[in-house]
Design a protein around this nucleic acid. Structure first.
Lengths: 207, 207
DNA sequence: CCATCAACCTACCGTGTCGTAAGTTACGGT
DNA sequence: ACCGTAACTTACGACACGGTAGGTTGATGG
């Protein structure tokens, strides 16, 4: 029984298609549990094509991860470009949650443990970088306000962890809307449980 | 070159040793990247012994994970048995961070993505359960206080994510002391960034 | 001293999977 | 119509790894 053969594609299109297939498959089964044969089958293509385009399994994976990293970093960087501290936290949360909502496969790929040597978890290291930056911002702010700057990284990592764990949970329930979730995260971060407002609102900057 | 042969061990001791070796190795390389041959080498033992004791790779992994889950759950359950809400959050954070400090290998094993079918991430599902429980507590409290109970899970997952991400970060820097970290987490959760105290203290219950 | 049994080892098999060598087919230009 | 080249395929090699069959060693009680 011959499977439905598809038309030939120019290199760039095929490459794009293979990246799509790779992202979806890696998202579903993870790196290790995804075989080149499965990728080839899904793309209706034979294995050597994968090797021609990406050199190997790690090559394809690297491309998928790299693209996704670029994308999410850009979105978050844009979100925190301007505004008050509180606005930035809210906008960053919103940007992250929006990414999670719009690109669940990408988020799944980044969430998984990376197999590449000396780099456990792409998202993990990305978030560590992010938290470290936030920590520096906090440290200077703490110094000015008379707080102990050594505590700054704790708060920074706490905030980042808050957002990402909520994001992971949200992928399962997909409700309520990301804007509402961002509001509540902002409220928790700023007011704490002790002083929660009954109806939080986004302190969004003029767009 | 003959490798230093060790004395024979009774079954229970050997089993215990193999579990130790397994936990350490799985912690270092993860499940997939750990081979039975490596485990056998590290334990100074040949492969069939591993199969005799645990039936296979998944068997050993299951035992390791199961033990670790039991252990961490017990510690956290003890911590949140009594006290005011704020005390419970602080004590739970402290218990978790103490576990992370004392059992880094166990924490590493639980942090990894599980390979077993239909169960992605042992720690992930554990934390989801935990967050869900906290969410229920919050929901009833919210209802009484006139807040929207639909928002409760957001705060619950936010808190859990806060603690775990800080825990993961702490494993790298191992500083400051877990008690101090727990203080700051409690402060962030209760007061928020807006009302941070300059020197947070633990509201520990009489022990 | 010897029988017995648990503890243990060497040597092997089958399978799944990454990666490749060599040949084949469709497409575009002339 | 025909040729060159890019796109693609089939078939296979190599190897790592999970798992097993069957034999060997050493302790322990009689």
């Amino acid at each position: 029984m011959k499977v439905g053969r598809t038309r030939r594609l120019p290199a760039t299109e095929r490459r794009a298609q293979l990246i799509d297939v790779g992202r979806a498959t890696f998202a579903k089964h993870g790196y290790e549990a995804t075989s080149m044969e499965e990728l080839a089958d899904r793309a209706k293509v034979s294995k050597p094509i994968l090797y021609e385009h990406f050199g190997g399994k790690e090559g394809l994976y690297a491309v998928v991860v790299d693209r996704e990293m670029d994308y999410v970093v850009r979105r978050i960087v844009e979100a925190i470009a301007t505004g008050s501290p509180r606005e930035r936290v809210e906008q960053a949360s919103l940007a992250f949650l929006t990414y999670v909502r719009d690109e669940p496969d990408g988020f799944a790929v980044l969430s998984q443990d990376s197999p590449v040597a000396s780099s456990r978890g792409r998202l993990a290291s990305l978030l560590n970088d992010l938290a470290e930056r936030v920590g520096h911002v906090f440290a200077t702010a703490f110094k000015e306000a008379g707080f102990d700057p050594k505590a700054a990284p704790i708060y920074a990592h706490g905030l980042v962890g808050m957002v990402t764990f909520v994001g992971k949970w949200w992928t399962d329930v997909r409700k309520p809307a990301v804007e509402d979730v961002a509001k509540h995260i902002g409220a928790l971060a700023w007011m704490g449980l002790r002083h929660l407002p009954k109806k939080p609102t986004l302190k969004s900057r003029p767009g």
